[in-house]
């Protein structure tokens, strides 16, 4: 018995240590980017020489404002489409029986199994040759939303499998109209899953390179400016902008942590 206990403690601390190592691995390049954003020379940042030139250039440069704005539009547009399709689709799959169910699930999930590069080039050629659509932010939103819908659907499905749909039926029995039922019963129970789906599909589209690159036409987003600026060396504005974006993300995480810490919002977790 004691041996089993030691094994338990060992596996818990071992896997916990691995998680910490993964965080270090994932955030080391981001820490490096933040560090270079403050240094005089991005290509040779050692030994450290501090400078705020990147932030000054960012403040006056129009290109990057536009790129950030386009990236945000792309991210939000795609996330809205993804969350809508994924929410409605996953509720249908979980709530109703149908012999089409398996086919529908496979259709929703199949973008997961097609590489970004393939989605990018195939929608470029399809839009151009068949639909006669030019490359612009709209076609980029659509192409990214295809990819994101699958992720959003997977997240919704996994989080809502255990949701008891009889609650909805009960509300209906007591005379609630479908919309009211959705608003008062379904939504309060599923919004953390919807939020997760929205955030993940936003992240996937916001900085997507391989799908967006082929479908944006002349529109510039953050990754395509990064790609373009590589030819004459990475400008100091990009690390500065990335550092600012990460600052916002860390702030959001801190707020979320505090909300969870003091049990103001549980984000779907049940004790």
């Amino acid at each position: 018995m004691r041996r089993a206990r030691t094994l338990d403690v060992l596996s818990k601390s071992g896997s916990g240590a691995l998680l910490v190592l993964l965080y270090v691995f994932l955030y080391a390049p981001i820490a490096y980017i933040i560090y270079t954003s403050f240094s005089k020379n991005i290509a040779w940042p050692f030994p450290p020489q501090l400078s705020l030139r990147g932030y000054e250039l960012l403040w006056v440069g129009r290109t990057y404002h536009e790129a950030l704005y386009n990236s945000l539009t792309l991210g939000i547009g795609s996330a809205v489409v993804c969350t809508l399709f994924a929410t409605i689709g996953s509720i249908a799959v979980l709530k109703y029986r149908s012999r089409w169910r398996r086919l529908i699930v496979i259709t929703y999930l199949c973008p997961l199994f097609v590489a970004n590069l393939l989605i990018g080039i195939s929608s470029l050629l399809f839009n151009r040759q068949v639909l006669n659509l030019p490359g612009n932010i709209g076609s980029a939103i659509i192409a990214n939303a295809v990819h994101g819908t699958a992720f959003a659907f997977l997240i919704m499905l996994a989080q809502m499998v255990r949701y008891d749909w009889r609650l909805d039926d009960a509300a209906m029995v007591f005379g609630a109209r479908p919309l009211r039922c959705f608003w008062e019963i379904t939504l309060p129970n599923t919004w953390p899953a919807m939020l997760g789906a929205f955030v993940i599909s936003f992240i996937l589209a916001f900085n997507n390179l391989e799908i967006s690159f082929y479908n944006l036409g002349a529109t510039q987003t953050l990754p395509s400016t990064a790609w373009g600026s590589l030819r004459h060396g990475l400008g100091p504005e990009l690390p500065a902008l990335a550092a600012l974006v990460n600052g916002v993300v860390f702030l959001a995480f801190a707020v979320m942590y505090l909300l969870m810490r003091y049990r103001i919002v549980s984000f779907g977790h049940r004790e």
Binding site: I33, I203, F206, L222, A226, W227, P239, V249
Partner: peptide
């Protein structure tokens, strides 16, 4: 980390 582009 995906908030920061793949190139960066």
């Amino acid at each position: 980390p995906f908030f920061t582009g793949i190139i960066l």
